[in-house]
C-alpha cells in the first residue's frame, strides 16, 4: 500500500485549513482526538466529529475490508466488532467510539491462520462476489459471542441484518452452522 509521506502532509494541511477561523459562514467544528484500538493496534486519529466509524476505518486507517453497501444501516456490509459486540460502523461516529476496541475483518485472521469461520465460508462457497462477506463473518463472530442462537432458524433470524445479493444465503448459514455445531469458536 502506498501512502506517500506527502499524502500525510497533505491531509494535515487540509485539516489545518479547516481549523482556521474562516471568513465564510460555514464554520467547521473542532477536530477531535479519537483513540481507537483497532485489531490490537492503538491509533490516535484527528477527526472532525462528522466522520463515521466506517469512513474512519476505510479512509483514515486504510482498512478497506469493511465495506460500505448502503451507509444507512440497511445491509450489514459494514459490520465490525466493537468491544466484542457486532455493530454497524456506518451508523456511528468515530468520536462516539473514543477508547473502544474495534475488530475488523483484517483482524479476524490470526497470523496466517484463517479463523474457522473464514475457512468454512470458503468450503461452503458462502459468497460469490465477496462484497458482503467481511460483514457476514464479523456478524457471525458476534453471533457466537452472544450465544443466543440455538437452532438453524435462530441463526437465520439473527444473521438477517446481513444481506447477500448474490443469494449465497444457504452457503452462509451452512458455514456458520458447521462452525457453531463443531464448537470451533471461542
Amino acid at each position: 500500500m502506498f501512502i506517500a509521506s506527502d499524502d500525510i502532509f497533505h491531509k494535515v494541511w487540509i485539516l489545518a485549513k479547516t481549523l482556521n477561523p474562516m471568513e465564510n459562514e460555514h464554520q467547521f467544528n473542532e477536530l477531535q482526538t479519537v483513540r481507537l484500538k483497532v485489531n490490537g493496534e492503538q491509533h490516535e486519529l484527528l477527526l472532525l466529529p462528522w466522520v463515521s466509524l466506517l469512513d474512519a476505518l476505510r479512509e483514515h486507517l486504510d482498512l478497506t475490508g469493511t465495506k460500505k453497501g448502503c451507509d444507512h444501516g440497511q445491509c450489514g456490509a459494514c459490520t465490525v466488532l466493537c468491544d466484542g459486540k457486532r455493530i454497524l460502523s456506518c451508523l456511528t461516529l468515530a468520536v462516539l467510539k473514543e477508547g473502544a476496541e474495534i475488530t475488523t475483518i483484517e483482524g479476524v485472521v490470526r497470523g496466517n491462520q484463517l479463523h474457522p469461520l473464514q475457512q468454512a465460508f470458503i468450503d461452503h462457497d458462502a459468497f460469490q462476489c465477496g462484497y458482503c462477506t467481511p460483514g457476514q463473518i464479523c456478524s457471525a463472530i458476534g453471533l457466537f459471542k452472544e450465544g443466543k442462537a440455538k437452532t438453524r432458524e435462530d441463526v437465520k433470524e439473527l444473521m438477517s441484518g446481513n444481506l447477500c445479493r448474490c443469494g449465497a444465503n444457504i452457503g452462509i448459514i451452512d458455514a456458520i452452522m458447521e462452525v457453531k455445531d463443531g464448537g470451533m469458536y471461542e
Binding site: M1, A4, Q118
Partner: peptide, 15 residues
C-alpha cells in the same frame, strides 16, 4: 474472507 480483495473504492491513492 480476509478483506484483502480490493474493489473499486478500496484503492488508497495519494492526494
Amino acid at each position: 474472507v480476509t478483506g484483502s480483495a480490493k474493489y473499486a473504492a478500496d484503492y488508497h491513492v495519494p492526494q
